[in-house]
Design a protein around this nucleic acid. Sequence first.
DNA 1: GTAAGCTTTTACCAAGCGGTTAAATTATCG
DNA 2: CGATAATTTAACCGCTTGGTAAAAGCTTAC
Lengths: 213, 213
Amino acid sequence: MAIPRAAKTQRRTRIQEEKEERILEAALDVFSVNGFRGSTIDQIAEAAGMSKPNLLYYFRTKEAIHRQLIDRVLTTWLEPLRVFDAAGEPESEIRSYIRRKLEMARDFPRESRLFANEILQGAPRIEDELKGPLKELVDEKAEVIRTWARAGKIARCDPYHLIFSIWSTTQHYADFDVQVRAVLGQAHSGDGRFEDAARFLEQLFMNGLRVRA
Amino acid sequence: MAIPRAAKTQRRTRIQEEKEERILEAALDVFSVNGFRGSTIDQIAEAAGMSKPNLLYYFRTKEAIHRQLIDRVLTTWLEPLRVFDAAGEPESEIRSYIRRKLEMARDFPRESRLFANEILQGAPRIEDELKGPLKELVDEKAEVIRTWARAGKIARCDPYHLIFSIWSTTQHYADFDVQVRAVLGQAHSGDGRFEDAARFLEQLFMNGLRVRA
DNA sequence: GTAAGCTTTTACCAAGCGGTTAAATTATCG
DNA sequence: CGATAATTTAACCGCTTGGTAAAAGCTTAC
């Protein structure tokens, strides 16, 4: 007779660790494309190569899987912004922030889309995290940017909308990938579009934020 | 005995016109939040104030409703880009393109989200339109931008990524509205954020694209 | 008014959904 | 090996889903 559910006592077997990882991996595939309501446990189970009841042995509900994925993404997602350093040179800080966000769009598009799906649908499951930790982090970094502007190191501008514009331009290459590919055609079918994007965005933001005489 | 379905003969009654409009209006509400798979006919029917079978009298399938919405959005959505004029002044053309896209994000957020949902999910229903009409239009306008750059009227840059960056920064205020509100807090609870965004984006793109000595 | 066509409702269905139960199977460890 | 706990499977449940059938109710034109 098995103890109710896997997570009841603390993490024990390596098989548990492996299966949970496989499930989360599969769920990321499914959720990032279909959103929460549009995804079924059966789809995830099949993608993970196991039966539905077997999957439900590791995660009690569909929502539990989603929750854990979202939590993971939220922490790793904001890492680049956390690194943003008040003591650094504005130009290089912003430049490398853009570059890092673009790399994430390239290397973790599913995570980006999972997040986008959640926000699009009104963020019912993460409103608190947005209004709490996220807002506080952005507030803090906005203050840094404002300081740089006051010191004449970059042009005066609204720091919040600057951050929004970096988020949107970079995530666009993950979230709207199909559209980007369709418009660019065969030409940039490899990862070339990311290099072009990096060049363009650096130019745009560096010139756009330069202090004008 | 009713003729199979409403659209069989050509559009007749004004009641048909009215009801179809009400259904599409309701469907836009529902689809734009939940995506295609996440939305149910019942939800749409209730939002339209009618029974499910009644709704299905006007539209044979869920997909038929969605299709018509998408088709509408696709045409109106690209209007601002079509207006983009090679004969105009680069600065004012780009500036007013940004302004118009931002107005659309403000005034038609549901349409923007419907589109975003579709793209996020791999655009299964509109891939052809993206690779065909959309790509052609963008190709044409990219050429215009390239001409301006060659003539020294704006900085040399990748015109495709310029267009992408305008799309993403403006649509962000519709698609990621919840996040934007959460981060900005009470401060800009009205439409003020759109004015701030307009100011910031104009500054960013105007400076970013100015020819540098 | 009445007949024809248009619209709405009631009742229904088969498939898919998230999730449970209990028994069968496998791994672990003394 | 044997016992105990961990894992997997088969069978199932009640609810929701997209969609249909058929009849009842309503409009409109003559």
